[in-house]
Simulated scan of single mutants.
Amino acid sequence: MNLFKKYKSKLVIVLSIIFLSVLILAYLLNDSIKGIINILVISFMLSYSVSPIRDSIESRFKIKKSIASLLIIFIILGACVTCTIVIIPALIKEVSNIGIIFDNIGSFLEKLSVKLKISSFPAINVIYNEVLERGNTIFLNLSKSLVNNFLLIAENLISCAVIPIIVYYFLCDGEKIYNNILLLLPTEKRALTKKILKDIDNVLGRYIVSQLVLSAIIGGLTFILLIVFKVKFPIWISILNAIFNIIPYFGPIFGGIPAIIVALLDSPIKAIWITIGIFLIQQIEGNILSPKITGDSTDMHPIVIIILLLIGDKFGGFLGMIIAVPIGVIIKVLYDDINYYLF
Score class of each variant (00 low, 15 high):
G317D: 05
S49I: 13
V147P: 04
S9C: 06
L184P: 05
D103G: 15
S16D: 01
Y168R: 05
I177R: 06
K176R: 14
I42Y: 12
V50G: 01
I305S: 02
K230L: 07
L192G: 06
N179I: 03
N97Q: 13
D296W: 05
C83L: 12
L146Q: 01
K111P: 01
I138S: 04
I181P: 00
P234R: 01
I331E: 05
G99H: 07
S56K: 15
E285V: 04
L3Q: 13
I224A: 09
I261E: 00
F318S: 12
C80P: 02
S49Q: 06
I257H: 00
G328L: 11
P234T: 04
F229C: 03
F315V: 12
I73Q: 08
I224P: 02
V114A: 05
M300K: 06
F318E: 12
G220W: 01
I165E: 04
I153E: 13
I37Y: 05
L225M: 11
A154P: 00
V14Q: 09
L20T: 08
I181H: 04
M300D: 01
N202C: 07
K144R: 11
G35E: 06
G256S: 14
K144E: 15
M1P: 10
L309D: 04
S290F: 01
E175N: 14
D296S: 14
I37W: 05
V262P: 00
G78R: 10
L25A: 15
S145H: 08
I39A: 15
T298F: 13
D55W: 05
L310T: 06
I76P: 04
F315N: 02
L204T: 05
I37T: 03
I227V: 13
I24V: 09
M321Q: 09
Y178N: 12
L334A: 06
F318Y: 11
K189H: 08
I217Q: 07
N38D: 15
I243T: 12
I17S: 05
I218E: 09
W236C: 00
N179C: 03
L157W: 06
I243F: 14
I306G: 08
I322N: 04
G277H: 03
F244T: 09
I158C: 03
F19I: 07
L240A: 13
N97R: 11
N30F: 09
A271L: 01
Y335V: 12
L91P: 00
F102K: 02
I87R: 03
I181T: 07
L264M: 10
S49A: 14
F315R: 07
G174H: 11
I24K: 13
V333D: 02
V167N: 03
G312Y: 00
I331L: 15
L280K: 02
P291H: 00
S107L: 10
N180I: 11
F44M: 10
S16I: 10
N149H: 13
D337Y: 08
V304Q: 13
V228F: 10
I247D: 10
K232C: 00
I118P: 05
I303E: 12
K64C: 00
I98K: 11
F315D: 03
K93A: 15
L132M: 13
P164E: 05
F318L: 15
C80Y: 09
P164R: 03
I17Q: 07
A263H: 02
I88R: 08
S43V: 04
I305C: 04
N2D: 12
V203H: 01
